[in-house]
Design a protein around this nucleic acid. Structure first.
Lengths: 152, 152
DNA sequence: ATTAAATACATGTATATACACGCAAAATAA
DNA sequence: TTATTTTGCGTGTATATACATGTATTTAAT
């Protein structure tokens, strides 16, 4: 679907303005599409992101700050996402003995199993849903980084 | 900043996978950047979106459903966003006489003035922050629509 | 005409986002 | 060593997101 149909608007100041709305809309669409699959595993988008980050360092533990700075959405309230993962026994919280201010998080065996299944489902989704050639994707990545060039 | 630095990850399955994360991160960045400016006017991202939609039809009124289907994020809870705009006297709610189920919304004179100032600020932000040529933006728009080709 | 179904909106719940504040521990300065 | 600042995390508040449910009104079916 074209952006014009999606948000029922045809008046854009210029192509850059349209691109901004297009990025926001595409991200919403992508998040929604992913969330539908994640729901089958009882995970939210943010919970999945935290589990993936933990797996990236596994079997090492990570503190909350390290997880937070790797999140896609930087203002995520990581302690509260961990609360929910802990209730589901997907991660374990411990106080660091080296620095007692730090809470260190470990993904559990159950967390790893669930994550593995979920990741397969996500990769299938990307392969089957995103109609991008490797070259198109490369161009897209370059352009998105241009958008953020003046990143603060 | 490159995506790799932003989310401190270098392991992407392929360029398409990286592009997905890049879209999500860029949208977050864009929303955050806009929100900083919007805050000066006491508006959130979603409130600004609703006001712009209302102005697009002004002086006509719009019902909640019409506003909702024009939102960038489709699952927005429009009645509650309108609650907050109404408190700030930026919009007025009335029950439609033609169909008493419908609530019709009108942007107020105050709403129009605030929106005008905010829109100028947003356009300045786009012009000064987004480093995209008209051609780059066009390519980006094409690629994003390719991403959503299999939109449900 | 009466009943059933659909529609438009409001409201409730759980989670997330954005941001502020507070506490305890650690690092630094005096 | 003591005092000050910084850091890491938890928690609180307002708003938003995602979804389910409730209520009134309209439309359609019988």
């Amino acid at each position: 679907m074209k952006l014009e149909q999606a948000i029922q608007s045809t008046r854009f100041k210029n192509e850059t303005h349209k691109a901004s709305l297009n990025i926001l809309y595409t991200a919403w669409w992508l998040k929604t599409t992913m969330s539908k699959s994640l729901k089958e595993y009882g995970l939210t988008h943010e919970q999945y992101n935290v589990l993936r980050i933990l797996k990236g360092k596994y079997p090492d533990q990570m503190c909350v700050r390290d997880i937070a700075c790797r999140m896609i959405e930087k203002n995520s309230n990581v302690p509260r996402i961990i609360d929910r993962l802990e209730i589901k026994k997907l991660v374990v919280r411990t106080t660091s003995q080296l620095d007692k201010r730090e809470t260190v998080i470990t993904i559990t065996a159950g967390g790893l199993v669930l994550l593995q299944a979920t990741t397969v489902s996500m990769e299938t989704l990307f392969d089957q849903t995103l109609e991008l050639s490797e070259n198109d994707a490369k161009t897209l990545n370059l352009l998105l980084e241009k958008v953020r060039e003046k990143e603060s």
